[in-house]
């Protein structure tokens, strides 16, 4: 395995089960992922697809691992920008763990780690997704902790 291009971590006051549901339920995904729709049955080997509200495919790939409520690995390629698509597939890993103590909460929290590794050189792809993830993650955190997101409109 190559070295991850980036590693993002957020701590969320929730349970691993609720976080897993938020990562896999299409209705919930749409709320924090700028209205994107996700299509997948979350079984290893199954196709995975992220689509814009108008039905165009944004990204696609396949599920490599899905262990609820702990670990999700997606083979992931951009489909709507030719220069990013040309860079090929990345591997996105989402890991859910219990953190025993997180100072902001003074107690237990769920730690979500998101990493992306490229199979080849993916400078443009990594630049594009690394900018999007912090927004998605803080929206997701806000949704799980307060029931609402900071901003819903598309990027």
């Amino acid at each position: 395995m190559s070295k991850p291009a980036f590693v993002y971590v957020t701590y969320i006051r929730t349970t691993p089960e609720k976080l897993w549901a938020a990562l896999t339920d299409p209705q919930t995904v749409g709320r924090y992922w700028f209205g994107m729709a996700v299509e997948c049955d979350w079984k290893p080997g199954s196709p995975w697809r992220l689509e814009f509200r108008d039905g165009r495919t944004a990204d696609s790939g396949e599920i490599i691992e899905a262990v609820a409520p702990k670990r999700l690995v997606i083979r992931w390629r951009n489909e709507f920008r030719p220069e990013l698509k040309a860079e090929g597939y990345s591997r996105c890993t989402m890991e859910i763990e219990m953190a025993e103590y997180y100072p902001d909460f003074g107690g237990r929290a769920v730690k979500l780690t998101v990493t992306h590794e490229m199979e080849g050189d993916g400078t443009k792809f990594i630049a594009a997704v690394s900018g999007g993830w912090p927004k998605i993650l803080s929206n997701l955190k806000s949704l799980l902790e307060t029931g609402d997101v900071a901003f819903e409109l598309g990027v």
């Binding site: 070295k3 590693v7 993002y8 971590v9 957020t10 912090p134 803080s138 900071a150």
Partner: peptide, 15 residues
């Protein structure tokens, strides 16, 4: 042991 910059907390502050 590789060290990565995690911009998520800074984004949360901005938010």
């Amino acid at each position: 042991k590789l060290h990565y910059l995690n911009p998520v907390p800074i984004h949360e502050i901005a938010e």
